[in-house]
């Protein structure tokens, strides 16, 4: 990880020194354990701020939409897929970007780590795949693989799909992972059980919209929940409105979601709203063989028609 950071700094410094970009978007060290803060730097002396470790779960593609500058951006596998999606959707031009690719080995699930201990987690250090968690009166080490975010543990695209320069050699992709066990669990339920399961899932939601705003796909100038004329969705804590928000947002991400996990990571009350988006991701994969953002040159399934598209749902 240290080597990654050094290399990212070097590349960023060179880019800014040679004026090849106006700013570089990356991460700087956070102020609490397991958090780094997305930041931009626009002078070579600031390159030393940049860091890379297993706490860079925020998807940096989120900071690109509609920007007009030339930008250097640090991108792990999922970030790069969302950058490709942005390019397809004309939110940024490929020629505006210098992508510093980072082969990713997964991000730490800070919620999971915090939940493992009674006391407060004060420090989390990682070295060579080993993560040590310390509190005021405890210390425990884990294999990093035990602490990964769920989406990272089933990720099959750890290496950036597009990049201009890599910060390290590609890592091996995970083989034989079962990506959709959680979705199948819901599929196995009857309608009432499903309804109840989602009711329970969404009960703690406070509609802060952190999931939406952390999502690189959610760049609409005005979200449908914010529309006032007409007003599509009520704004109270009514469970119907809360659910409408979540499932419509998921629909808007159909065929675009890369399961980067930014939404779940951002949620202050620990809702796994990925069970919505993942169902659509699974359907897109099964119906169209589609995985979002693998190339900026292929049109997504929802804006293309092929005669062989499945249509057995139409009577």
């Amino acid at each position: 990880m240290l080597a990654y950071t050094d290399r990212i700094k070097e590349i960023a410094r060179a880019l800014l020194t040679d004026c090849r970009v106006e700013l570089v978007i990356g991460f700087r060290k956070g102020t609490v354990p397991m958090m780094n803060e997305p930041c931009f730097i626009n002078s070579p002396d600031e390159a030393d701020q940049l860091v890379w470790d297993s706490n860079c779960g925020i998807n940096l593609a989120n900071y690109l939409a509609n920007r007009t500058e030339k930008i250097g951006i640090v991108a792990k596998g999922c970030d790069s897929r969302n950058i490709a999606t942005h390019i397809i959707e004309n939110k940024i031009g490929r020629d505006q970007l210098f992508i510093i690719g980072v082969p990713c080995q997964g991000m730490i699930d800070r919620r999971k780590v915090n939940a493992m201990f009674d006391g407060e987690v004060r420090e989390v250090v990682e070295s060579d795949g080993l993560v040590t968690v310390r509190g005021a009166d405890f210390e425990k080490s884990f294999e990093k693989s035990e602490l990964l975010q769920q989406n990272c543990s089933v990720c099959t695209h750890r290496n950036p799909v597009i990049f201009d320069e890599m910060a390290a050699d590609p890592v091996d992709e995970q083989q034989g992972v079962d990506r959709y066990a959680d979705v199948r669990e819901i599929e196995a339920m009857d309608p009432q059980q499903r309804w109840d399961a989602f009711e329970k899932l969404l009960a703690p939601c406070i509609r802060c919209y952190a999931c939406r705003n952390a999502c690189p796909l959610c760049y609409c100038p005005t979200c449908f929940v914010d529309e006032a004329r007409p007003q599509w969705v009520g704004k109270s804590q009514n469970p119907v409105d809360v659910r409408t928000f979540h499932f419509l947002r998921a629909y808007h991400c159909a065929g675009r979601c890369t399961d980067c996990g930014a939404c779940e990571r951002a949620c202050p009350v620990g809702i796994n709203m990925r069970v919505f988006t993942k169902k659509l991701e699974k359907d897109c994969f099964e119906s169209f063989g589609w995985e979002a953002g693998l190339s900026p040159d292929v049109r997504p399934p929802l804006d293309t028609y092929r005669p062989e598209d499945p249509d057995d749902f139409i009577k």
Binding site: F247, I314, K315
Partner: peptide, 15 residues
């Protein structure tokens, strides 16, 4: 919709 718990058959498509 069905995934969310709407009963199968309540939402139908035809051409």
């Amino acid at each position: 919709m069905e995934h969310m718990g709407i009963e199968p058959g309540r939402l139908q498509f035809s051409w």
